[in-house]
Amino acid sequence: MKYLGIEPKRLRFAVFEFTGCEGCELQLANKEETLLAFLMAIDVIDFREVSSARNGEYDVALVDGAISRADEVERLREIRRRAKVLVALGSCACFGGVNRMKNACDLEEANREVYGDHPKETLPTRAIHEVVPVDLKIPGCPVSKAEVERIVQHLLFEVPYQFPVYPVCLECKQRFTVCLFDRGQLCLGPITRGGCDAPCPAGGLGCWGCRGQAAEANIDEFQSIARERGHSEREIAERMGFFGGFEEHS
């Protein structure tokens, strides 16, 4: 990953996963067109899902998943102690993600329903920043590999990364995607932080808000327009609560 022939510094990366589907880590091995350049620009020293090598010290820890058990709290604290930079990777790490919906249930009852007479240990789901300090949050379910690449470039060249302030709507316009909100689907595009390149509306699905709230989003106005268009209070609340990215509003 040279720029104008100049070799950037090499950083040691480690990847760790907690409560989640590991889909965000998987994105690190996707986008095959640029994967070789990506892997050659960094030193991946600890990444259990793809490597048996374990080498100790690292500069950047990418943490995928939410926290929902006592042993995870301990592991996370140890990672925080050893990492110079700790990055929350994906909506589970940033907000708790879909796992957070579990918190609305009685956990003992949930346990009985799934495991009967052999309940398993479980805690209310927390985002990474609710347990240890986080230096950078990359939201998305899953994260956009293109955005992860951009952020890694900034880390290598020591230039701060500026997340887009505009909403997903703008990216639909750029792609010429026909507006699904106008066509009657509920879509959180107007209030959700852009940067994903709006794949969901392009695939025929309104935005579910996995990247959390856009800067300066007018939530009240959006909700009143959505209600006017016939979306129920319940539908809007469920949608905004889905990934935990609009916590203060749901």
């Binding site: 409560t19 989640g20 880590e25 058990r69 993600g97 879909v98 579990k102 539908e235 469920e238 889905f242």
Partner: peptide, 27 residues
């Protein structure tokens, strides 16, 4: 760590079921 998807699916609208249950697995 267990996530209790079967419990989280309860009460969900049919248009949500596929979106939520996809999150069971990243692969």
């Amino acid at each position: 760590t267990p996530r209790f998807f079967e419990v989280m699916l309860k009460g969900k609208h049919y248009t949500t079921a596929g979106i939520l249950s996809a999150r069971i697995c990243g692969i």
